[in-house]
Amino acid sequence: MRTNILIFIMLFVLIFSGCSTEEKVNLEDSMNAIIDYKLYEVGSEQSDKVKKWLVNAILTGEEGQYFIFQNGSEGKDYMYSYVYRKGYSDFEVSFIYEPTDKSNKGKIHVTGTEKNPINEKILEIKSINDLSILFILSDESLKSKLE
Results as ranks from 00 to 15, higher is better:
1 M>Y: 10
6 L>N: 12
6 L>H: 08
8 F>L: 15
16 F>W: 13
19 C>I: 14
19 C>P: 03
22 E>I: 15
25 V>G: 00
26 N>V: 09
26 N>T: 06
28 E>W: 02
28 E>Y: 06
30 S>T: 12
31 M>C: 03
33 A>P: 00
33 A>H: 05
34 I>F: 10
36 D>G: 04
37 Y>L: 08
38 K>M: 10
41 E>V: 11
42 V>A: 07
44 S>I: 04
46 Q>M: 13
47 S>A: 13
48 D>T: 13
49 K>R: 10
51 K>D: 15
52 K>Q: 14
53 W>E: 11
54 L>I: 06
55 V>S: 10
56 N>C: 03
57 A>E: 06
57 A>M: 04
57 A>Q: 01
60 T>V: 07
60 T>A: 04
61 G>S: 04
63 E>L: 08
65 Q>V: 12
69 F>A: 08
70 Q>Y: 04
73 S>I: 06
74 E>I: 14
74 E>A: 09
78 Y>W: 10
78 Y>P: 01
78 Y>K: 15
80 Y>A: 15
80 Y>D: 12
81 S>C: 09
82 Y>L: 10
82 Y>D: 02
82 Y>T: 06
85 R>F: 02
85 R>P: 00
85 R>T: 15
87 G>P: 03
89 S>M: 03
89 S>V: 04
89 S>T: 06
91 F>T: 06
92 E>W: 00
93 V>L: 05
100 T>S: 13
102 K>M: 07
105 K>W: 01
106 G>N: 01
110 V>F: 08
113 T>A: 03
114 E>C: 07
118 I>T: 14
121 K>R: 10
121 K>E: 06
122 I>N: 02
124 E>H: 01
125 I>G: 00
131 L>D: 14
133 I>M: 09
134 L>P: 00
134 L>K: 15
134 L>W: 00
137 L>I: 12
138 S>R: 07
142 L>A: 07
142 L>R: 09
143 K>A: 13
144 S>F: 03
146 L>V: 11
